[in-house]
Structure formats: structure tokens, C-alpha cells
Amino acid sequence: ARSEQERLLRVSTTLYVGNLSFFTTEEQIYELFSKTGDVKRVVMGLDRYKKTPCGFCFVEYYTRGDAENAVRYINGTRLDDRIVRTDWDAGFIEGRQFGRG
């Protein structure tokens, strides 16, 4: 299962984006991450109970190359004064957008 997970990460077009402000919106994420390519979807991480943004999201691209460029150029720069951190994600699955409250 571990090697399967590694394989998924190598071909993934989805990024986990962390260290966001609770006030950062989906619109802002779109604007920033569209700078490296066409974004397929953004899934905002939500507080399990209050259903409000809680500092992370998933950004899915159509191509691996666009996602790689986001890791290269957007990771480590700022949005709403916070340094954006990106990580590869094996692919968003419904339910994972709910963080701990």
C-alpha cells in the first residue's frame, strides 16, 4: 500500500495547500494558483462543525506540469500575509475537506 501511495503521489495533479489564513477565500486561491495553469477545482478545507474555512485547501490541476510549477513558484510565497505551503496529495476524496475544529 505504501508503494501504491508513492506511485499516486508521483503522478498526482492535486496539491494540499496549507498554512492559509482562515479568511482566505476560494477566489483568492484560484487567482494565485491559476498563475501556473488551468485549475480544475479548488476544495476548501472546512471546519467539521462550523463549516467555515480552516486554513487549508486542495488545488487540482488538469496537468502534472502545471501542478509542478505551482510547487516550484507558488510554494513559499505569500497570500494574505501568510507563507503558502504546498504538498503533493494523492487525490482528493470526498469528506477529506473537513478538518478538526
Binding site: K35, T36, N69, R72, G76, T77
Partner: peptide, 11 residues
């Protein structure tokens, strides 16, 4: 290159 490349390089 991508415009954002120059942006992040300058940062």
C-alpha cells in the same frame, strides 16, 4: 517562462 516564475524569482 511563466510570468509567475519571474515574480517568484524577484521575491
Amino acid at each position: 517562462y511563466l510570468e509567475v516564475f519571474y515574480g517568484s524569482l524577484l521575491i
